[in-house]
C-alpha cells in the first residue's frame, strides 16, 4: 500500500499524459491534469509557509542566535499576507478602489489596489533588495574570475580569451576596438551554439531517460523509498 500504490499512480498518470500526445480523445486528461497539478502546487506552497513560520517561531521561542531578526521576518510575512488578502477581498477598499461582486459572493477588486501599501512594499522592498543581492555577485564573480582565470592550461586560456572577448564586446568601448564586435558575435553564434546544442541534446537524453525510469518505478528515491 505504502510503496506499490504510489508507483502505480505514477505509472498510470505518466502513461495517460504520454498517450494524450498521440491520442486526441485523451486531451481531456491533459487539460484536467494541468489544472490538478496547479492546485496541488499551490497547496504545496503552504508547506513552505508552515516550515518558515515554524523555523522562525522556534528561534524566537528558544531565544536562539539572531532571534530578534526572526520577528522581522514573521511580522513582514503576516503583514504581506493580510494586506494581500484584505486588499483583494475589498476590506476597507472603499477608500482606495472599486469593488466588483465576485463569483462566490465576496467582493473582489479588479487588480491589486494599493490599500495597505501592498504593491508599494513589493516595489520598494522586494524588488530593490533582490536586484541589489544579484548585483552583489558582480563583486564576488570578479574575485572568482581573478582566481580562476589564470592561463595555466590550454583549456583555461580558452575560457579566459572567450570571456574577455565577450565582456569587451558587451561594453561601449568594445565597439571601437577593431574586430571585437565581430569576434564576439562569432563566439556566441558558432562555438558557443555548438557547445550549448551538445549540452542541450545531452540534457534532453538525460531528461527522457530519467522520466522513463521514474514512470517505470526504477527510480523511486523521490518518494523517499530506498532500495
Amino acid at each position: 500500500m505504502r510503496r506499490q500504490v504510489p508507483l502505480v499512480i505514477c505509472f498510470v498518470a505518466g502513461v495517460l499524459m504520454l498517450a494524450q500526445s498521440f491520442v486526441p480523445p485523451l486531451n481531456w486528461f491533459y487539460t484536467n491534469a494541468l489544472a490538478w497539478a496547479r492546485i496541488i502546487s499551490c497547496i504545496a506552497v503552504f508547506i513552505g509557509l508552515i516550515s518558515l513560520v515554524r523555523l522562525h517561531a522556534t528561534k524566537v521561542r528558544r531565544r536562539a542566535a539572531d532571534w530578534k531578526f526572526s520577528i522581522i521576518t514573521l511580522l513582514a510575512l503576516l503583514y504581506m499576507m493580510l494586506a494581500g488578502l484584505l486588499t483583494r477581498y475589498g476590506v476597507f477598499v472603499k477608500l482606495h478602489g472599486q469593488c466588483v461582486p465576485g463569483s462566490m459572493g465576496d467582493k473582489i477588486v479588479t487588480g491589486f489596489q494599493n490599500a495597505f501599501n501592498f504593491q508599494d512594499i513589493f516595489l520598494n522592498i522586494q524588488i530593490p533588495v533582490q536586484a541589489t543581492m544579484f548585483s552583489l555577485l558582480a563583486f564576488y564573480i570578479a574575485s572568482a574570475a581573478f582566481r580562476a582565470f589564470r592561463a595555466r592550461t590550454f583549456e583555461a586560456t580558452l575560457l579566459l580569451v572567450a570571456a574577455t572577448i565577450v565582456m569587451l564586446g558587451r561594453v561601449p568601448v568594445g565597439h571601437y576596438i577593431w574586430g571585437v564586435p565581430q569576434a564576439t558575435a562569432w563566439i556566441l553564434d558558432v562555438p558557443n551554439t555548438a557547445a550549448k546544442r551538445g549540452i542541450m541534446i545531452g540534457i534532453g537524453l538525460g531528461m527522457t531517460s530519467t522520466a522513463l525510469k521514474i514512470m517505470l518505478g526504477i527510480e523511486r528515491t523521490y518518494l523517499g523509498i530506498k532500495d
Binding site: 498518470a13 502513461v15 499524459m17 504520454l18 490538478w36 497539478a37 502546487s41
Partner: peptide, 12 residues
C-alpha cells in the same frame, strides 16, 4: 507520485 507521473508523461 501523481505530480511526478503527470510531469514525466508530459515532458517526454
Amino acid at each position: 507520485a501523481l505530480v511526478m507521473g503527470i510531469s514525466c508523461g508530459v515532458s517526454i
